[in-house]
């Protein structure tokens, strides 16, 4: 029987761990379990941007680098532990731009070494990416000398993808509703670990109405139940984000002491739980 703690134990220190943004099934309980297990050196990938779980993991010292297109707490503003870590040079930031992250994952899901993407030329994001290349479009009129430069992005396979879905069945199929971009993430990752609100009877893929929002168990390595596992973020139409909590976090996490208090209160095991 998997739990958020066993999933966290299966994510090794130093892993390239891909996480969805705050409005798309972010696995917050799993992030708390990673803090509790004392994970170190994680290389986070925001797909395509990063939010609460990333800030929490950075603050708790779990993170070596973040590849992302933005880190934000949305209406609550700046991600304070991320901003502080950048200021101190405590983490490496590998800046990308949203469609580039989607495209690198799409290349991995197709099993091809790279894919092209329009735009981005002249951005300093490109200037700081030694792993991104620009070629002249070989299909342009006039061939490769046609003077149509285009960006090529390498395939990117995260070691682990993690998200919090609504439900799963005994075959390991998980239901993500309309957030089907998570299927690309699961397809591209070497492993996918998923927490869910609940298990359901039968097969999600036998139900025509559920199948389109389902990611096949083919791509899912482990599932654990974590009720309200996206909290304090929201989950589709299951529950709304806890805006007051996120706002309180954003204030508390401005200082080291405030963040430490937050961890004690909301993340680390209480003494009574630890004694169980």
């Amino acid at each position: 029987m998997e739990t958020p703690e066993t999933l966290a134990a299966s994510i090794p220190d130093g892993a390239l761990l891909a996480l969805p943004p705050d409005n798309s099934l972010a696995p917050c309980e799993l992030a708390r379990a990673l803090v509790r297990r004392g994970a170190r050196g994680l290389r986070l990938l925001g797909v395509p941007v990063s939010g609460f779980a990333t800030d929490l993991l950075i603050g708790a010292g779990c993170v070596a680098s973040v590849q992302t297109s933005a880190v934000t707490l949305g209406e609550a503003g700046t991600a304070p532990r991320f901003a502080d870590a950048v200021r101190r040079g405590a983490i490496a930031v590998i800046d990308a731009t949203c469609p580039a992250i989607h495209t690198m994952l799409q290349a991995a899901e197709k099993g091809v070494p790279f894919m092209p993407l329009r735009g981005v030329l002249g951005s300093d994001v490109l200037a700081h990416r030694a792993d991104w290349k620009v070629i002249d479009n070989p299909f342009a009129q006039g061939g490769a000398d046609g003077g149509d430069p285009i960006l090529l992005l390498p395939a990117l396979s995260p070691d682990v993808a993690a998200f919090h879905a609504v439900c799963a069945d005994a075959d390991g199929n998980v239901w993500v509703g309309r957030r089907r971009e998570l299927a690309t993430l699961a397809h591209a990752a070497r492993r996918a670990v998923v927490t869910v609100e609940r298990m359901v009877a039968g097969s999600l893929l036998d139900d025509e109405r559920m199948a389109a929002g389902t990611i096949s168990g083919t791509y899912i390595d482990a599932v654990a139940v974590a009720a309200r596992g996206a909290w304090p973020l929201g989950l589709l139409d299951e529950y709304a984000a806890d805006a007051a909590h996120i706002s309180d976090y954003a204030k508390a996490a401005r200082t080291d002491a405030g963040f430490a208090c937050y961890l004690e209160r909301h993340v680390l095991p209480s003494r009574s739980q630890a004694a169980e």
């Binding site: 941007v49 933005a70 880190v71 934000t72 991600a79 731009t97 949203c98 735009g119 981005v120 300093d124």
Partner: peptide, 27 residues
């Protein structure tokens, strides 16, 4: 500039990041 001020990647003041701007602005 949605990335930050000062040296790369925004050591003086870090903004959230580029989001999709480096693509959308062209498209």
């Amino acid at each position: 500039n949605l990335i930050g001020t000062g040296d790369w990647p925004g050591r003086d003041a870090r903004f959230p990041g580029s989001f999709g701007s480096a693509f959308m602005y062209f498209m």
